[in-house]
Each structure stands twice: as C-alpha cells, then as structure tokens.
Amino acid sequence: MDENTDRIGWLRERRAGIGGTDAAVLMGTHVGKVTPRDVYNDKIATDDPAELNLPMFRFGHMLEPRLLAEAEAHHGIKVRPGGLFRNKAESWRYANPDALTSDGGILECKTTGTTTKHYAAWKAGDISPHAYDQTQHYLAVTGRAHARFVVGVNPKGWQKRPESEWVDSVTEIFHVGPIPRDEARIAEILEAERDFWACVEARALSTRWAPREVEARIPEMVEDDLVRLAVIKEQQTKLKADREAIEKRLRGAIGDEGGFLTLWGKPRVSLTAYDAETFDKAGLIEAHPDIAERFIGTAPRTRLSVVDA
C-alpha cells in the first residue's frame, strides 16, 4: 500500500491492528504521554482518524529521502521503501518500516534535537527503549534479521527557518546498527500484543491495561476540593501576572543602571546586578555525550491531573 495515495485510508489501516509505536506504548517505553487506554480508544473508534500535522513530523518526512541516501552511502547497501506488512497468521499485527535493506534488514529514519535526552545515546551508537521495541515488533512481523537506524539532528532554531531550508540545515547525521533480532524481547512483545488485542476484540479492557478506578467515598468533599483547586490555580495565575507587572514598573522606576528607589526619603527597593550560576545541558550533551548519558536519566514520578467531566 502506498502511504501517499490515500492518507486517511492509511490511517484506517493502522487503526485496524497493532503497529510498532503501539507496541512501545504497551511495553511502557513510549516517549510520549500516550497510554494503553488511549491506544484502545483509537482502535475501537468509528470516526475518521485525525492526523497531527506537527512541524516535527513534517521535518522528519521531508528529511527521509536524504537520510535513506545517506544510509546507502554509509553502509554500502541498497535501500528500498518499506510499505505495509501484515503477519499472515495474525493479520492485526502490522509493520510499516521506513525502508528495507538489501542485506536482509530494515532501516528506520529518526530525528532528534541536541537538547533531548536521547541525543547523547544516538551519538554514542545506542538507541532509545522506544525505538528498540518498535523495531523488534517490525522484525517480528517482517521476519527480517536486523535493524539499522539513520538519525538526523535538528539544528537549533530550525522551526524559525523557512520549511524550504529545513533539509539543508541538517549537518549532523548518526548511523546506528545493525541491531539483531531479540527473540526474548519479541516473545514479551507478542504476549502483550495478543493480550491487548483480545481486549480490543472483546471491547473491554482488562485490569492489566485499564488504570485502577477508585470511587470517592465522600463525593461532595471531592467535588468541593476540585472547585477550590480550580479557583486557586486561577488566582495563582493572576497573582503571578500582577507580581511580574509590579516588579517591571519598579525596575523601570530605578533604571538599567540599578541602585535604590527611595520613598519619603528612605530606600525601599534595590536593584543590584549579580552573576547567577547556569547549567548548559545542551552544551554538556554535545561536548561530552558519554558523560551526560551517565547522569541524565528518568525517575518514577506521579502526575495529578484533573479530567474534564
């Protein structure tokens, strides 16, 4: 299937099964905020799928032909477009690798920024957990032996440039791989996918995929807390804006040279210069990616969000 002939049809095809990005979500390695419930809701939806026309997606699509050519030259192999593949026995498992390689592998094109936590890993020849699970899923579906990656680095300030200059602005490209099939990980991925797809076909998520729901014991108290929380957040926003406006007026009254603002002959506000300590995270990653990789990681956290009724 040609991805460019019918974009909505292509998105419908992706909805009718589990792909590489879905696999990463199910395995808990996806880099975004998508949850298994989000994937489930998309699979059972009946309306036309919506496409996100984000700049970073357009950038990656425009850069892909150049990355494929770079990979051919770097590895000395032939590369051809991937297309859509489905498993014969379980047609709901599909893969759409960016390209296939003449040495029996697949090739994935990626982009990254110098300030992202994965930049150092790509530069050092490693791949993100998301990319690993995505491509292991692809290898499982296609039966191919290994995966390679070609990564274009988004230059600083690329979104401010005209789109016609995006591709030529890329000066840093990484080549990673080959990464062989990981049969143990593939088995884990397939087990999770089969369990999840059974839920999709049954139109009911199991407790493995659905977040725990706890009914409020005192609904009136929770409702009151939610109302108060909304009011407090609104007040905080206004107070912050008021504080910034007042401080701006006071700074303006003193002037850029600094000093004291007096009131009834007495100093009441001072404006002094000092050197603040800063940390250039992007600079550290670029200059010492191996060191940065050792100290930049993730830690378990919880996020409290209010769901709109």
Rank of each mutant, 00 (worst) to 15 (best):
D48E: 10
W209D: 03
E215G: 05
W166Y: 02
V150L: 04
P36W: 01
P178G: 04
A121E: 03
A23R: 04
V307A: 15
G143H: 10
T298A: 13
A210S: 12
P55R: 10
K33W: 14
Q236W: 05
D256K: 14
A121M: 09
C199T: 07
A71W: 05
E108R: 04
E220N: 11
R212L: 15
V141C: 10
I77M: 06
H74P: 01
G255H: 03
A124E: 11
D126Y: 12
D168M: 02
A24M: 12
G265P: 00
A187Y: 01
A202P: 04
A187D: 08
P49M: 06
M62Y: 00
V200F: 08
G152D: 07
Y40P: 03
I8E: 09
E165K: 11
W166G: 01
P178W: 00
P180L: 03
Y138D: 15
L205M: 15
R37L: 15
S169D: 05
T29L: 00
E188I: 02
P65M: 01
K238N: 08
T5D: 09
A282C: 05
T135E: 09
K240V: 07
F174W: 07
R294L: 14
D2E: 11
P267E: 08
V214C: 03
P155N: 02
D290K: 13
E234H: 11
I18W: 03
I18F: 07
D103T: 08
S164Y: 03
Q136A: 06
R243V: 12
R144N: 08
R161L: 14
R194I: 05
G177N: 02
K117P: 06
G19Q: 06
A73I: 11
I291R: 09
R194K: 14
E201Y: 07
V307W: 09
D38V: 02
E3L: 11
K78T: 14
T237H: 05
H146M: 01
A202W: 02
G9M: 06
E215M: 12
L84W: 13
R12L: 15
K248L: 12
Q136F: 04
A71V: 08
A187I: 00
P49Y: 02
S128A: 13
I44D: 05
V31E: 12
R15D: 09
V167C: 01
E3Q: 12
P155S: 01
I44N: 01
W197P: 03
D98G: 10
A45I: 04
L226P: 09
R203P: 01
W92H: 13
E234C: 03
R7C: 09
E223Q: 15
W122I: 00
H74A: 12
K240M: 05
A292F: 11
I232L: 10
Q136N: 11
M221N: 06
I77V: 15
W209K: 01
A73G: 04
G297E: 03
W10Y: 14
Y119Q: 01
A145M: 09
T29C: 03
K160D: 13
G258F: 05
I18D: 05
A187S: 09
D126F: 12
T272H: 13
R93F: 14
E277S: 11
E277F: 02
N96G: 14
R93V: 10
H118L: 07
L239I: 14
L239T: 12
K156E: 15
A187V: 00
V200Q: 00
R243Y: 07
Q134P: 09
